[in-house]
Nucleic acid binder design. Structure first.
Length: 203
DNA sequence: TGCCAGGCCCTCTTTAGGGCCTT
């Protein structure tokens, strides 16, 4: 059985910001972290059945010609549903990725059992003095080595995973807990900024 | 780099508005 505190850190590239406005996923990237080690990776382009805008081509480097012969969203998301089965999930600004995960899995009548935690909400509390809380800024702020090639799904999920692990190490120094439970991370994300220290001291 | 949406957060708030973050 998977450990409840094993997580899959995931990132979608999409045609836009809102599945309710007709936007679709075009790439999914994810890494599985078990006992602090990356033990699995997933990356696939997928054909959304619509042309992507010039803005998205420029933003991601993913072109219409790259997607032309990619497998369908349905095929890729079916494999991805298997990859995340039984694991809790992490994403940077998780509400965005959760909307696309829910929409794409709903299209193929699949579900998932894991819960989401958001690395951006945790970072706002653990790194309150960062210049901002964009993924790229936080990676630099936490001194995580990076070649700067953001906005591809696997790369961003790897960077978010390293940020997640860096925040876990920071939190560990502020508690007496030998390991930081996933539920505590979810709780940190929902705790008012000025109450986080007290929460950790009493955990 | 922007627009589109939505959830969270802050404040000159709660009968609200606007910034952040994701593509």
């Amino acid at each position: 059985m998977p450990n409840a505190d094993t997580v899959v850190v995931l990132d979608f590239e999409t045609t836009g910001l809102s599945p309710t406005m007709g936007d679709r996923a075009i790439e999914i990237g994810a890494v599985r972290i078990e006992n602090g080690e990356i033990t699995g990776r997933f990356q696939e382009l997928m054909n959304p059945g619509q042309r992507i805008s010039g803005f998205i081509e420029d933003y991601t480097g993913i072109t219409n010609s790259m997607l032309k012969h990619a497998p369908s969203c349905e095929e890729v998301m079916s494999q991805f549903a298997d990859f995340i089965s039984g694991y809790n999930l992490v994403a940077h600004n998780a509400s965005f990725d959760k909307r696309f995960l829910d929409a794409e899995l709903s299209n193929i009548s699949r579900t998932y059992s894991g819960q989401f935690a958001c690395s951006m909400l945790v970072a706002r509390r653990i790194y309150p003095h960062a210049p901002d809380h964009k993924l790229g800024t936080l990676v630099r702020y936490a001194n995580i080595p990076s070649d700067g090639a953001f906005h591809r799904a696997l790369y961003d999920s790897e960077m978010a995973a390293k940020l997640w692990q860096a925040m876990l190490r920071t939190i560990e120094k502020q508690t007496v807990l030998p390991e930081i439970p996933f539920k505590l991370l979810q709780k940190i994300a929902k705790t008012p900024k000025n109450s986080v220290r007290a929460l950790l001291e009493h955990s």
